[in-house]
Design a protein around this nucleic acid. Sequence first.
DNA 1: CTGCCCCTGTAA
DNA 2: TTACAGGGGCAG
Length: 265
Amino acid sequence: MPELPEVEAVVARARRAAKGRTIRKIEVLRASAVRPQTAALVARRAGNRRIENIERRGKNILIRLAGGYTIRIHLKLNGDLHTDGVNWSSRVIFHLSGGRQLVFDEPRALGTVNVLDEKQLAAALAGIGPEPLSREFRAEDFVEAAGKSRLAAKLFLMDQKRVAGLGNVYAAEALFRARIHPGRRMNELGAGEAGELYGAIREVLREAVKSAKIAYNHPGGHKEAARFKPSVYGREGEPCVRCGSRIRRIQQGGRSTYFCAHCQR
DNA sequence: CTGCCCCTGTAA
DNA sequence: TTACAGGGGCAG
């Protein structure tokens, strides 16, 4: 479930570990992890390149290399990029200068590592909307786009073209915070509701980024304490934290949506 | 817009 | 043993 906050935390950690180092060797343990590319291409493009920076765009991890190539990593469902050493779910190992290694893990094997040239990178990022925690994400734009869309609110929030980085968890949490039913059509939201939703997105994400950074950067006991606790996601049948009625689960776009039918109208 | 597919661990 | 979860890309 890495969404914007978790990817942000992973990126911060990877940046500290790897920025300025050179990739000595790339070991692809599972060929499908670099699909549709090949291990040979990945090694040829990224081998012996210096890591200029590591950034996040939406849920994409971008490792900027000297010479113009960029490693694009998508963690999909359960991916991770860490320095804790190799285990059974490790798919790609970046051997770095200074004896360090960065490891890409993906137990579900949906996540990918690709090395893109500038044109490919531009194409990959072309469809990604504004960063919700940046100034480019403006309330008036969001409200205007909302007024023009007949999409259900939950599906709208998960559409990466509209806002970057929200997934199943934080889309549901933002809707709960704004007290909006996930099935409401965006263009049928009331005057203040789209604005409420805009604010809720930013609040939820800001909180979650804080939690994720602690959870990903401190070992052991702090992790559990810092962990973001969803109000609705994954809580079917449990009491709503606001009103006590049972959280419900419905299907939207083939995926589960959790919400409180009493609080969210 | 809906639905299928990718892929595999885990829950039923 | 099977169903399901899930982001995103793509076909229909």
